[in-house]
Design a protein around this nucleic acid. Structure first.
Length: 894
RNA sequence: GCCCGCUUGGCUCAGCGGUAGAGCACUCGCUUCACACGCGAGGGGUCAGUAGUUCGAAUCUACUAGCGGGCACCA
């Protein structure tokens, strides 16, 4: 007897298979020997080197793996390309912290040594997520793994930079930017966190230069007043008509500043007069340009006041300066009032420091042309295709339309140093290499720009830089563009849009056909999981407790809508995994003598009903599964598989096969029944494999089948693995509606008898008798299934339309013209039976009335499709028949 | 402020123009020779509300309410 544990132990299966799959190269598209096979590509949105696996990753990875495994089994050359990004700011922060513990700063080490330290850190602590990817069963091609700081990727970054610069799309300029005083670097708009905060609104009086009086302005940041160069009012504001063009004396500084008119001002807000600090506010910066105002920087890159703020303030922290400004203004009677006020404040996404808008020289990427190309692609070709299209297509295009230039330089040491050099005379040379720059400049006295590029600048190139671009490699030709990008919605801007723009610019083609946007896994209070809230659930712990396969199934069924995390759900899929294990256990315990070759379902016409039925169900399921995967209907496909395996295969097919399969004596009938059972199981495992890779491989390897023959043709010379077995696509010829209808009648009959058993409180161990009278068609169906009906109802079955049934019997009427009687001499309570039948009659009557009403509506009969009308008529007829049979029964009982 | 999504049994979610579904929870009965992470039988929903379109609406349209999200937030 084969020894198989009664309960599935996921850890056991998870321990072995992955390493074997990886070693044997199953993940690489080269395993596929069919040169004409279609290509399927997914480039992973590279997780960052400092990150570790969270639920969102696990969700996306599951879906990517499902699709990759599915296409691979269909014989496609499937490539899932893994990568990782260098996360400039976060990583530098990690290492800086590490140094701090040693009492060092990065400047103590110098740039070169510091970068070395970062590489060391990366080797030691970075990329945790890569092993977690393995744990998930992700079938990524590790041989093509790319890290954004690898030389090949760095080269692509320099190439892209040079090309964009030469095309006039990258420029260096002095503009207002988001500055993080803590990280000492500029940030792009997308890295800014907007958070509401309780603050104050200060009303300040600015006196007129000539004559008495003053204008009151409101501000949340009084310290910036030291850098004010104007006050603005709305041109139509009656209150200020007379003061337009007048001059004010800026308090504390005694600078003369003008009053100018600008539409931007909202007269209703505050006093309707706005102080303008072009050097420390993005809106004021724009206004400053419009009115040719001086830009006076009063705050430096450390968030301290500059010399320009005046001797009293220079060197003070910006918040200390705020207090001092207020104190001094109050002393001079220029503080009108202070009110509580809530507004949104910009913070650094990573370190949460309040950002300081500063004027600074940075590199920018112009977005107009890139943006227009992306928008045109969407408008003309509807590419990329968003799934679901509502609302993401609009989210994407709205964002693109309002796009501003992208700040791409960062004041960091970890990252791609900008390929720009300065000559002694200050000319800028942009080139791929220093040598190229020297040649261009005609001198070797060049200094390279100190800054590095935004990490996203390199990530945006991933869809093609990972494939070898700028070289026209075979990989690039073969695998670009990729088939689908799977991602969470907060990445649409950071990634999707930028990849589309660079893809169109450099490759002339969008980087992926489809963009599938996953839902979000929320906690049970509908809150997003986050580190700061501490409400995150660690996928690794879930793997540990319920197994990887069960977790994958749970995550796959999230699909594209947000879902609250429920451990009960994982538990039910854990139970499903166990159900599969035990179904296989049953098959294996009864496998002896099952033939190894040949199609056990060969003689299709003459198969028993339940065999034709399960074949029909299986093939229908396979077709549905393929269709649903094609449409990214992850939730639906999980339901389809679950229902087929548990309800159709386990609850019915195994039970219907049992008497033959478990017969004591060996026989050809027993052999073939066993072979059929195993064949259905085997195909089911293949259908399930993309979702549950470990369990299915574990079981599949144990099945007594000719494994090699089951491999897809493209992998026929490989070692057998379910990973490379042919994915069942479903044969339409095996779908047999008649068999399904007949089987349904048998199932209904068995259910009705069980219902009688239960309602009449008949002990499971008590044998009963079931007498069946049916119309000729069903009569033969039931007759052929009599043994199975008997077994599943624990009854003696007799089928005879003319037999006399005893009065003391529980009865039921089936749809399609069949009646059953269960003689219950001495056991039956006539009143109870009457009540039961009457309830049933009532139900039928209600339904009949509803149908009659519809059929009596002449509009319905004339306008609804004829098919629909006749369907309803047939139902009415069936109900009438059952109803009158019930009447007879009731009459007999009275 | 602008835009979007969601609202279906106690809970978590499917369905998205033609007889209201699943899992969990609940009730009853089962150590039936794969599985108690199980088997069998049940109960439970006017599909948020209102008005429309339609022969027919949970499903389409508009509005309302509640919840959630995105963008812009004006000092």
């Amino acid at each position: 007897m084969i020894d198989i544990p009664k309960t599935y132990d996921p850890k056991e299966a998870e321990r072995h298979h992955y390493a074997r799959w990886e070693e044997r190269g199953y993940f690489a598209p080269e395993i596929n020997k069919d040169r004409n096979a279609p290509v399927y590509t997914i480039v992973i949105p590279p997780p960052n080197v400092t990150g570790s696996l969270h639920m969102g990753h696990a969700l996306q990875h599951t879906m990517m793996d499902v699709l990759t495994r599915w296409k691979r089994m269909l014989g496609w050359r499937a490539l899932w390309l893994p990568g990782m990004d260098h996360a400039g700011i976060s990583t530098q922060l990690m290492v800086t912290r590490q140094l701090k513990k040693e009492g060092l700063t990065r400047h103590d080490l110098g740039r070169e040594k510091f970068v070395e330290r970062v590489w060391q850190w990366k080797e030691e602590y970075g990329g945790q997520i890569l092993n977690q990817l393995r744990r998930e069963g992700a079938s990524v091609d590790w041989s093509r793994f790319r890290f954004t700081m690898d030389e090949s990727m760095s080269r692509a970054v320099r190439e892209a930079f040079v090309r964009l610069y030469d095309a006039g799309m990258i420029y260096r300029g002095n503009r207002i930017v988001n500055w993080c005083p803590n990280d000492q670097t500029v940030l792009s708009d997308l890295e800014v966190l907007r958070e509401p905060q309780k603050g104050k609104l200060y009303y300040l009086r600015y006196p007129f230069k000539d004559g008495d009086g003053s204008i009151t302005v409101a501000t949340t940041r009084p310290e910036t007043m030291l850098g004010d160069t104007a006050v603005m009012v709305h041109p139509d504001d009656e209150r200020y008509r007379d003061v337009l063009g007048k001059t004010l004396i800026l308090p504390l500084v005694n600078r003369e500043i003008p009053i100018v008119a600008d539409d931007f001002v909202e007269s209703e807000f505050g006093t309707g007069a706005v102080k303008v600090t072009p050097a420390h506010d993005p809106h004021d910066y724009e206004a400053g340009l419009r009115h040719h105002l001086e830009q006076i920087s009063v705050i430096d890159k450390y968030g301290r006041m500059t010399e320009a703020a005046g001797a009293d303030f220079a060197g003070l922290d910006r918040y200390k300066a705020r207090d001092l400004v207020i104190e001094k203004l109050e002393a001079q009677g220029l503080l009108e009032k202070v009110v509580d006020y809530e507004n949104a404040i910009s913070k650094c996404e990573r370190c949460k420091t309040v950002l300081e808008p500063l004027i600074s020289t940075q590199w920018f990427c112009r977005m107009d042309k890139l943006r227009d190309a992306a928008l045109a692609k969407l408008r003309d070709d509807r590419k990329p295709r968003f799934v679901p299209d509502v609302p993401y297509e609009k989210v994407y295009s709205d964002w693109l339309e309002n796009l501003r230039d992208w700040t791409i330089s960062r004041q960091l040491w970890w990252g791609h140093q900008i390929p720009a050099w300065y000559t002694p005379s200050g000319d800028v040379i942009v080139a791929r290499t220093r040598a190229e720059a020297e040649a261009k400049a005609g001198t070797n006295e060049l200094t390279q720009d100190e800054d590095v590029l935004d990490t996203w600048f390199s990530s945006a190139l991933c869809p093609f830089s990972t494939l070898g671009w700028p070289d026209e490699t075979d990989d690039l030709k073969t695998f670009y563009p990729s088939s689908v990008l799977i991602t969470a919605r907060d990445i649409i801007f950071l990634w999707v849009s930028r990849m589309v723009m660079t893809g169109l610019e450099f490759m002339g083609k969008e980087p992926f056909d489809d963009v599938y946007v996953t839902g979000t896994v929320l906690d049970k209070h509908s809150q997003r999981m986050s580190k700061t809230k501490g409400n995150g659930i660690d996928p690794l712990e879930v793997f540990e407790k319920y197994g990887v396969d069960a977790t994958r199934l749970t995550l796959a069924s999230v699909g594209s809508t947000d879902t609250r995390w429920s451990e009960k759900q994982v538990e039910s899929y854990r139970n499903f995994a166990n159900k599969i294990w035990n179904a296989a256990r049953f098959c294996l315990l009864n496998a002896e003598g099952g033939p190894l070759s040949g199609d056990p379902f060969a003689d299709h016409e003459n198969l028993p009903l339940h065999d034709r039925w399960i074949l029909s169900r299986l093939n229908k399921t396979a077709r549905a599964v393929n269709a649903q995967l094609e449409q990214y209907e992850f939730h639906g496909v999980v339901q389809t598989l679950y229902h087929f395996f548990w309800d159709d295969f386990c609850d019915w097919y195994i039970e219907l096969s049992k008497s033959t399969v478990t017969a004591e004596a060996d026989s050809e009938t027993r052999q073939i029944a066993r072979a059929r059972l195993i064949a259905i199981l085997e195909q089911s495992l293949r259908l399930l494999h993309p979702f549950m890779p470990y369990l299915t491989e574990e079981l599949w390897q144990r099945l007594p089948v000719g494994h090699s023959h089951l491999l897809h043709g493209a992998y026929s010379d490989s070692e057998p693995t379910i990973m490379l077995a042919a994915y069942p696509e479903g044969d339409a010829a095996l779908i047999d509606e008649a068999a399904e209808a007949e089987m349904q009648a048998v199932i209904d009959l068995i259910s009705r008898v069980r219902n009688i058993r239960s309602e009449m409180n008949i002990k499971p161990s008590d044998r009963i008798q079931v007498m069946i009278a049916a119309t000729s068609n069903l009569q033969s169906v039931f007759a052929a299934s009599a043994d199975q009906i008997a077994r599943l109802t624990r009854a003696e079955v007799s089928i005879d339309g003319n037999a006399q049934t005893p009065e003391a019997a529980a009865r039921a009427v089936l749809s399609g013209g069949a009646e059953i009687a269960v003689p219950l001499e001495g056991l039956i309570d006539f009143a109870q039976e009457r009540a039961r039948l009457s309830r049933e009659k009532e139900k039928l009557q209600k339904e009949a009335e509803k149908l009659e009403r519809q059929l009596n509506n002449s509009d319905f009969v004339s306008r609804a499709p004829a098919e629909k009308v006749s369907e309803l008529r047939a139902r009415v007829e069936d109900i009438a028949q059952r109803s009158s049979a019930l009447d007879q029964m009731l009459e007999a009982l009275s």
